[in-house]
Amino acid sequence: MKTLPPGLQESLASGATTLCRCWKLVRADEVLLGFTDHDEDLVFDGVTYRAASGFTASSIDQSLGLNVDGLEVQGALVDDALNEDDLAAGLFDNARITVLLVDWRKPDNRIILFAGSIGEVSRGEVQFSAEIRGLAHALNQPRGRLFQRSCDADLGDTRCGIDISGGAYHGTGTVTQVSDSRSFRASGLEAFASDWFSRGRLIWETGANAGSVMEVKVHDLVSGEAVIELWEPMAKGIATGDAFAVTAGCDKTWRTCRERFGNGDNFRGFPFMPGNDWVTSYPNKGEGNDGNKLSG
């Protein structure tokens, strides 16, 4: 049970309440934003809570135990506070959010109603809707390693051990022709074979998407020029002349780790784990019954 500050308790007991809700949001890039459903901006604790955002929220679903509490908020896509480009760029993904009940006459009279993070976000032409998840949501995330055939390390991390900053695993290019918001041709990658950058990371260095990161779906080499398709469309348009850096990709299989990267000793999967075909197999007569290992 929450304990109300004396001033807020008196306001509620008076019968003529002057309450509003405020939302303090910290994006992935640590930019702090404030919103309120009051009809005027409020300022406290050094944060301006803007009324022009059109923020509204559903009731808060809270329960005892470790169930994930939540609510849904909606708002307008307006100027520098909330806009389509920032949402599409993922700046609000997993953003930290705090919901407060505030007496707008005396903002010091307030209480935290809810704290959590932003989950699934859907966007329309002029508004957005976001799912807000409680702090217990973090307890639902997988922890530890999975027993699986594929590698669970990321290419270039400490568990993998490959230095992808070297020239063999890192390239830079410039867009020469744009097909759509996720497909284009580029120069500067002629020395790399087809598929080398598939599943790799592409970082835009110039242009409207500068600083944005996207995973490469397909990398091909056609007539001496790289053809790249990204997994998702970029938030802003790709233009001829945009420069980018890209790192090699890995499909996390034992064969790729051993043959392409020569890194079999650091493979973080279980490539010889028996599958369903082994479970359903049965004894038979013929060749291959010499007691040797089944693969490798």
Rank of each mutant, 00 (worst) to 15 (best):
K2S: 13
P5Q: 13
P5L: 14
P6V: 10
L12T: 02
A13G: 09
T17R: 09
T17V: 12
T17Q: 13
T18S: 15
T18R: 14
L19K: 11
L19R: 08
C20K: 00
W23K: 03
K24C: 12
V26R: 14
A28H: 08
D29K: 09
G34V: 13
D37I: 02
H38F: 15
F44A: 11
G46H: 08
G46P: 05
A51I: 01
A52M: 12
F55D: 03
A57W: 00
A57F: 03
A57K: 00
S58H: 07
S59R: 06
Q62K: 12
S63E: 10
L64F: 05
G65I: 04
L66T: 14
D69I: 00
D69R: 03
L71C: 14
L71Y: 15
V73Y: 07
V73G: 04
D80A: 11
A81M: 08
E84Y: 05
A89L: 12
G90I: 09
A95M: 13
A95V: 11
A95I: 12
A95D: 10
R96C: 00
I97Q: 03
I97T: 01
L101C: 06
D108R: 11
N109T: 00
I112Q: 15
F114S: 01
S117T: 02
I118N: 01
I118P: 03
E120A: 14
E131W: 01
I132D: 08
I132P: 06
G134Y: 10
G144H: 09
R149C: 04
S150R: 11
A153V: 00
D157S: 14
D157P: 13
T158Y: 01
T158P: 01
R159T: 13
G161I: 04
I162P: 08
D163P: 09
I164L: 09
I164G: 07
S165R: 10
S165L: 10
S165C: 01
G167W: 00
A168C: 03
A168H: 07
H170G: 06
G171A: 11
G173Y: 07
V175R: 05
T176F: 05
D180M: 08
R182H: 15
F184I: 02
F184Q: 02
A193Y: 09
A193K: 10
S194G: 15
D195F: 05
S198D: 10
R199A: 02
R201N: 04
R201V: 02
R201C: 00
L202T: 04
L202N: 04
S212Y: 07
S212V: 05
V213L: 09
E215L: 08
E215I: 12
V216Y: 02
K217D: 15
V218A: 08
H219L: 02
L221M: 14
V227M: 06
I228C: 00
I228D: 04
I228E: 06
E229L: 08
W231L: 14
P233A: 05
K236Y: 04
G237I: 05
A239D: 14
G241E: 13
A245E: 12
V246R: 01
T247W: 04
G249C: 03
C250K: 06
D251I: 08
W254A: 12
W254K: 10
T256M: 10
R258G: 02
F261W: 10
N263R: 10
N266F: 04
P271C: 14
G275E: 13
G275Y: 07
D277L: 09
W278C: 02
T280F: 13
T280Q: 04
S281Q: 10
P283Y: 09
N284M: 08
E287W: 09
G288K: 06
N289Y: 06
D290A: 08
